[in-house]
Design a protein around this nucleic acid. Structure first.
Length: 616
RNA sequence: GCCAUCUUAGCUCAGUUGGUAGAGCAGCGCAUUCGUAACGCGCAGGUCAGGAGUUCGAAUCUCCUAGAUGGCUCCA
């Protein structure tokens, strides 16, 4: 899309927000309007119908019909400006208290907007940081709204749209503000693009990891266990363990050592690290019935790893020291935030911590970037990174100058590795800046996955030291890294990315053997193949049920098994098999026969080399 | 945590204005012994999420609780 097209699409979406607000105002004349910005794929408008009246999806048809009327009328968008004071009077006159509040803030702060407001998002009027004197309005037909534009020429030129959903949203995103109703719409320049977008949503629905998780028997939830606490079945556990093993293997190439830490600890550990002050209300508390100890479930692992480091005097020669632990943490997330595997209360991290000297930071980060690169190339997801910096708030610990240099070092590493990156303030951890990896899945959605974090704060708080070359005491730097992130979240992404069609190396079931009949000779032959496969550590399952071959093939397809092999008289006689290959893996046609040994060894090699296509 | 919607058999879903629950698949049994996406017949399976209320009568109406979904807020 050219810049010009993008601008035009933006104006269309923005104009649609106005048209929707206008339509809602026609239908509910007393509506109080909030803000109506453009968002990814569309727009929304926050409205308050008053008296607690609620919109529902059932109202969309009426609203859309009213919007179509406005569109048909092709009302021109007119821009008008007025001094802020006059604008406040306007808001009062039309009893628009939310607009009035925005305008008052605008006037009072003297700059574009109060700090918590993003003028672009709010569609606000002023530009630059200079004192605001005038604000702009846009008018179409009988509807006028505070807005900085731009808009399309007339309501007739807004492309194709669809109202999608309505949801509660706090006024200005503040939890204690009144809750308004946010009506979302998607919009595109042409009906065809809208269609494509809706098709993508359909596809996403088909791939939903919660749906596939059930269909493919990967994990279950139980009300007896609690929300946000997924339980992994044998199949799901294979996925978890294969992925974790790969993540570990990558780092073990760089001499990371596995460690192990308990899941509960005294809260003193987190008071020292600084986590208690920041996340105390999201920790699970554990009470000892024996002593007066107040324990907590660990929400992360870095403070534990500092205990291993600190357990011995360290020399500059010992560094870097690299610990690796794949372990489960527990966080008491708010119930409304839980969903599938994406956000859980028991999350497993493939966590690692490097303790190193300042002059080793660059090499260490390079190695971790290489690990992330290889992992995501293997699973077939494109990466870009977000450099997550601090902002000016007081949410961060440690010396500001150290932060500055840490942020610079992260950026330098990212640039040196020629990674596609963007920078964002306010996304850092409280103890240091991060490189956050964003992976794009098979249907174009981006997810946050791996992370590399630089930390000067915890070494200081824990008083970590090493004996430097000149005999003085140096302080190591910590580099946190998780390649998969949370394994649960990664799985949700991975399941949707693959659509449940897992490559050989992660497939819970790699080969399904189907017996043509239940004669003893057939079953014996099937069993001999199973024994050979097991020797090669292949995950093989047998379907010798009393069903038709067609039915059994169908089942194997439904379970998305990579290789399905029918075994009967022909195979027994010839000792050769003709594997049926799952559609997405095929690179060449037609299939041919292989000796059982040749077939199994090929599959074992594919698993070992983590390929996604078949070499058969 | 907040707002909205939802919860009927293992799964996917029917269930008309309140009159006491139904299908397909899966499961089990019988029959069949089958060649690359569904053979047939039969059987069993539900405190309609849980609780309280309104009513002669509640899957259906009201309230509470739990869980799920979509958002908001948050994410070490």
């Amino acid at each position: 899309m050219s810049d010009k097209q993008a601008e035009n699409l933006y104006a269309m979406r923005h104009s649609l927000a106005h048209i929707m607000a206008s339509a809602i105002q026609h239908l509910w004349p007393d509506v109080k309007l909030g803000v109506g910005p453009v968002v990814e794929d569309g727009f929304y408008y926050d409205v308050d119908l008053g008296d607690g009246e609620q919109l529902s999806a059932d109202d969309f048809e009426r609203i859309e019909a009213e919007m179509q009327k406005i569109i048909k009328a092709a009302e021109p968008f007119e821009r008008l400006e007025m001094p802020v004071g006059e604008a406040v009077a306007w808001a009062k006159k039309y009893s628009q208290p939310y607009k009035e509040e925005l305008l008052n803030d605008l006037q009072r702060s003297g700059t574009t907007v109060a700090k918590d407001l993003d003028s672009a998002e709010l569609g606000l009027a002023a530009e630059g940081d200079s004192k605001v004197e005038k604000v702009s309005f846009y008018r179409n037909g009988d509807f006028t709204d505070l807005c900085r534009g731009p808009h399309v020429e007339s309501t007739g030129k807004v492309g194709a749209f669809k109202l999608m959903r309505v949801a509660g949203a706090y006024w200005r995103g503040k939890e204690n503000n009144p809750q308004m109703q946010r009506v979302y719409g998607v919009a595109f320049a042409t009906p065809k693009e809208l269609r494509q977008y809706l098709d993508m949503l359909e596809e996403a629905k088909k791939r939903d990891h919660r749906k596939l998780g059930q269909e493919l028997d990967l994990y279950v939830m139980s009300e007896l266990v609690g929300s946000g606490l997924p339980i992994f079945t044998p199949r799901g556990t294979v996925l978890r363990e294969e992925l974790a093993a790969f993540s570990n293997e990558l780092r073990q190439r760089y001499d990371f050592q596995k460690v192990w830490t308990p899941h509960i600890t005294k809260k003193d550990l987190y008071e020292k690290s600084g986590h208690w002050a920041k996340f105390g209300d999201e920790l699970f508390l554990v009470k000892s019935q024996e002593t007066s100890d107040e324990l907590v479930m660990k929400p992360m692992n870095c403070p534990h790893h500092t205990r291993i480091y600190a357990s011995q005097p360290r020399s500059y020669r010992d560094l870097p020291i690299r610990y690796l632990e794949t372990t489960t943490d527990y966080r008491d997330e708010k119930t409304g935030e839980l969903g599938g595997l994406n956000r859980v209360r028991s999350l497993t991290q493939d966590d690692s911590h490097v303790f190193c000297r300042h002059d080793q930071i660059e090499t260490e980060i390079d190695q971790l970037l290489a690990c992330a690169d290889e992992l995501y190339a293997t699973v077939g997801m494109k990466l870009r990174v977000r450099l997550s910096y601090r902002d000016e708030s007081d949410a961060y610990l440690g010396d500001k100058n150290l932060w500055e240099s840490a942020q610079k070092q992260l950026k330098a590493a990212v640039v040196a590795n020629e990674l596609d990156y963007f920078e964002q303030e306010g996304e850092a951890a409280f103890y240091g800046p991060k490189i956050d990896f964003m992976a794009t899945d098979a249907i174009g959605r981006e997810h946050q996955v791996a992370t590399v974090q630089l930390d000067f704060v915890q070494p200081e708080r824990f008083g970590l030291e090493y004996a430097a070359e000149d005999g003085s005491q140096g302080q190591p730097v910590m580099i946190h890294c998780a390649l998969l992130g949370s394994i649960e979240r990664f799985l949700s992404v991975y399941i949707e990315h693959t659509g449940g069609k897992f490559p050989i190396w992660t497939a819970p079931e790699q080969i399904r053997l189907i017996s043509v009949n239940q004669e003893p000779e057939t079953l014996a032959f099937v069993d001999s193949v199973v024994q050979q496969a097991k020797k090669l550590r292949l995950r093989v399952m047998v379907d010798n049920s009393n069903e038709s071959v067609g039915k059994k093939i169908r089942n194997a397809e439904i379970w998305k098994v990579p290789y399905t092999v029918v075994l009967g008289e022909k195979e027994i006689a010839g000792g050769e098999v003709t594997p049926r290959v799952r559609g997405d893996m095929v690179v060449k046609e037609p299939p041919r026969s292989y000796t059982v040994d040749e077939f199994l060894k090929t599959v074992a090699n594919e698993a070992k080399s983590r390929v996604s296509k078949t070499s058969l």
